[in-house]
Simulated assay, not measured.
Amino acid sequence: MSTPIQDVIRVAVVEDQPLFRSMLERTLGQTEGLQVVVSVGTVSDARRALRPGAAHVALLDIDLPDGNGIALGVTLRRQQPELGILLLSAHDAMDLLLDLPSDVAEGWGYLSKNSSTSEELLVSAVRSAAVRETVLDPELLARITPRAGSDVAQLTHRQYEVLRLLASGLSNAGIGERLGITEKSVQNHVNALYATLGIDADPSRNPRVSAALRLLEETGPGI
């Protein structure tokens, strides 16, 4: 279940490259409504600094000198179930989200350092992580195609477009603006793709998160 966005979202940055870490600090620290409260470069430092309640969102590099951000995120999430997790990686390893343990799998985001990730997207992904929503790197999503025989392959072209934009963190209004259609039309497409993918309105699960994970599960690299 999503939690309300805080008035000020406290962010922990765990990134071992000093230059990139300082860029993240500056970008997030200068954004209204965000505050960088932890900035470290190792797993051990992160474990010491990220006590319960210290941050609302942990921005974690996957490759750290004394471990990896995914294992760190799993540990932190089990200790702090409301903590949002946003992964960064120099490798296009978005499908690693499918291997997360089921008890902590909901609401992880993923951005690639190699894509043209903008400051706007970074900030949006942090805000989404604060309410346990999943945001996936839009440039990586643009490169994937549905696997033959999968439920995702049964979607219409428009439904598939909507699903990819949904998975990249856009709201229905944002999707409508991107595609030049009304918000009501977007909602109709969302309802139809949920039906095709068998995603129900279980109140214990966020259907947009479930849809994003199904997109990852049933697609592969484009030809």
Rank of each mutant, 00 (worst) to 15 (best):
A211Y: 00
G67S: 05
L140T: 01
E177V: 06
A125V: 11
G33R: 09
D95R: 13
A167E: 01
R214I: 05
A55V: 01
Q6L: 02
G176C: 03
Y110M: 04
L96C: 13
D92N: 11
P52Q: 10
G33T: 12
Q30A: 14
S102D: 14
S22C: 08
S22R: 15
A211D: 07
L97Q: 06
G73E: 03
E177D: 14
A55S: 06
E177Y: 06
R127C: 02
G180D: 05
L111S: 13
G33E: 08
P221F: 03
I9S: 04
R214K: 14
L96K: 14
D103F: 01
E133D: 07
G53K: 09
N114P: 01
R51S: 10
L136W: 04
G53Q: 12
L64R: 04
D92Y: 02
S102W: 11
T75H: 14
S2L: 08
D202W: 11
L59N: 04
L165W: 03
Y194N: 07
L140I: 08
I223D: 12
P101H: 08
R77S: 10
G222N: 08
D200V: 13
K113C: 07
L24Q: 11
G84H: 06
T31H: 03
Y160P: 08
S112K: 01
V37Q: 03
A148P: 13
N114W: 02
V13Q: 05
L193T: 06
A55H: 06
A54D: 06
I5H: 14
P18V: 12
G222S: 11
R78C: 09
E82S: 13
E161C: 10
P52C: 05
Q79F: 07
V14P: 05
L213C: 00
Q30S: 15
F20P: 04
G41Q: 09
N191L: 09
L88K: 02
